[in-house]
Structures are given as C-alpha cells and as structure tokens.
C-alpha cells in the first residue's frame, strides 16, 4: 500500500489525487472524503504526493521487496587491508 494518508491530518482537498503522475488515488470532490489509494501497485514512489500535500498527511510505505541492499562500508576496508 504505497501512499498512506493520515486521516487525522487530511483536509480532503484532493491535491494528491490531482497531481499523482500515476493516478493511483481515487477522489470525488463532492464526497469530501479521504482519497482512496485505489491502485497501490501502480505507485512509482516518486513522493509527489508527499511533497505537495498541504498538510503533510501523505507518506510512502515502501514495499518490503524494494529493500535496499547494503553492507557496512567498513567491511570493504577490512578486507582491503
């Protein structure tokens, strides 16, 4: 579920739904409700919603399989020395 909307902060302005490059949200202005994340699998995780939300109510939940592969850099030096 990539974008996560904090319902206590959302003011139902629909900005996230309007600007999302992948149109993952569904929002009907007349309903005055929290936008629905209808197409979570189509999120690019670009964070446009997070950047543009006037209330700071949207954050990204990165899928577990997007885990960033890393090691302690000091390990590279130990083996080097």
């Amino acid at each position: 579920m990539p974008p996560v909307i904090d319902e206590t902060k959302c003011i139902h302005c629909g900005k996230c739904a309007d600007i999302c490059p992948l149109s993952v949200f569904f929002f009907r202005r007349e309903e005055r409700a929290v936008p629905e994340v209808r197409y979570p699998d189509e999120c690019w995780h670009c964070n446009a919603c997070g950047l543009d939300c006037p209330q700071g109510a949207v954050s990204l939940q990165i899928p577990l399989n997007y885990m960033l592969l890393r090691i302690e850099a000091s390990q590279l030096k130990q083996t080097k020395e």
């Binding site: 309007d18 999302c20 490059p21 992948l22 149109s23 670009c46 964070n47 446009a48 543009d52």
Partner: peptide, 11 residues
C-alpha cells in the same frame, strides 16, 4: 496525469 508532477522529471 497533471503537468504539475508528470513524467520522468516529475519531482
């Protein structure tokens, strides 16, 4: 989408 945040230059 919306020109405000679309495409590869979106953000």
């Amino acid at each position: 989408a919306n020109t405000l945040r679309s495409g590869s230059g979106a953000t």
